[in-house]
Design a protein around this nucleic acid. Structure first.
Lengths: 214, 214
DNA sequence: CTGTACTCTTGATTTACATCATTTTTTTTG
DNA sequence: CAAAAAAAATGATGTAAATCAAGAGTACAG
């Protein structure tokens, strides 16, 4: 749980590199897609964090309370991945990361970036929970493929390493459903399976289309 | 998605404050509950990240590939919240955070801690997706209550700010299910509702018990 | 105020997936 | 290489929550 900074911590931030902003109910702190500028600590009030899903409707990600820090969603890519609205009159305290970063060695900048990525991936994992079993499995496979590709590995064939049961646990589905859906994908010639645990992506584009289709 | 460090980045880490560890398939890098020691970058192979849920069975959180960094789960509390197993022979590169931290000003240490918390909260949010509508709602209410309490606010009465629809979106439930379940909790005198959007927790202990019950 | 539009509630029906039950296949091991 | 154990496949059945539908309360705009 994202608990808080102590009042003391916030004071320290205040002294260092920040200033305060007043938000009226309904006002926006930052919007998804705009370029990353700062982290913010909520000083008073509450804000709502939302994200446009690909059907272009808003998913509610959560609400943040005083002492909690928002903005990590923008660190990894340099663009905010979410939108922040005040749901009551609120004060936020700006943490200008670029100023902070001047005093941070490169390694820990990288770490913060990674933390930001992990946070975004968590949001993604949650959004996957909203869709059908079929889409969840495809999502998982394409996510893996993408990560392999990004590292210079083969994106179209890879080891699963997980049993049907573990995969089900990961995707909140039963082992039976995983088995059935994977076989269905194979019958449809969208993927093929080698030795139960090895996946070949046969129709990457079609798989992607299934994900964006209603 | 938790993408990777570039090979270059890993080299930099190597030079600074790290050394490499070889893990055979099935070996454990760290266990849930043990005290935080380092972050690790996966250099080769793949590892599985799992977490014991309160029924004491293992939830699979995900797998990590080369270039990705693990261990953020231990930063916030000082205790790892997950367990890492190698699922094939793997090399990991230790990032001794305490050494890195000597060069980091206090503010950014705090930020990293917050990032760690956000990551853990994401895991928690995902685990909530596995339980019944009733438990999901109770979980949400108790999480909010806890966060208010932690900040010195009243833990037993607070504003929801979200509509039934938004709450449903947040918890992956329909607005109708939210309405029904909240009313049921009120009829059972576990909570009471003021003006639709304001919650009073009446039976904190009983609510907690419902969460741990099968 | 008074019409218009959300939000919430409540009931009836449907459905996607879980669960249960077997069988088949694969892996492990003595 | 058998025997035992674990994992996977597959069919039958059950169910929690979604969806559909309709009415009641509440907000708010002209």
């Amino acid at each position: 749980m994202p608990y808080g900074l102590s009042a003391n911590d916030i004071d320290k931030l205040d002294q260092s590199v920040s200033h305060t902003k007043l938000l009226q109910k309904g006002e926006t702190l930052y919007r998804q897609g705009t370029s990353f500028k700062s982290l913010y600590a909520v000083k008073s009030g509450s804000v709502k964090i939302t994200s446009l899903n690909q059907e272009a409707s808003e998913d509610v990600i959560g609400i943040y309370l005083p002492g909690e820090i928002i903005g990590f969603d923008g660190i990894a890519t340099g663009e905010y991945q979410c939108t922040i609205h005040a749901i009551e009159t609120s004060n936020v305290c700006e943490i200008n990361l670029s100023e902070v970063q001047e005093n941070i060695p490169g390694v820990s900048q990288q770490l913060l970036k990674h933390a930001g990525r992990a946070i975004n991936h968590g949001r993604y994992a949650r959004s996957v929970a909203k869709v059908s079993a079929r889409k969840r499995i495809i999502s998982f496979l394409l996510d893996l493929s993408d990560r392999y590709r990004h590292r210079g590995y083969l994106a179209t064939e890879f080891e699963l390493y997980l049993s049907r049961g573990e995969l089900g646990n990961l995707l909140n589905l039963s082992a039976e459903t995983i088995s059935r859906e994977i076989h269905k994908l194979e019958r449809e010639k969208l993927i093929s399976i080698v030795n139960k645990r090895r996946i070949q992506i046969k129709q990457m584009d079609q798989l992607k289309e299934i994900l964006i289709a209603p």
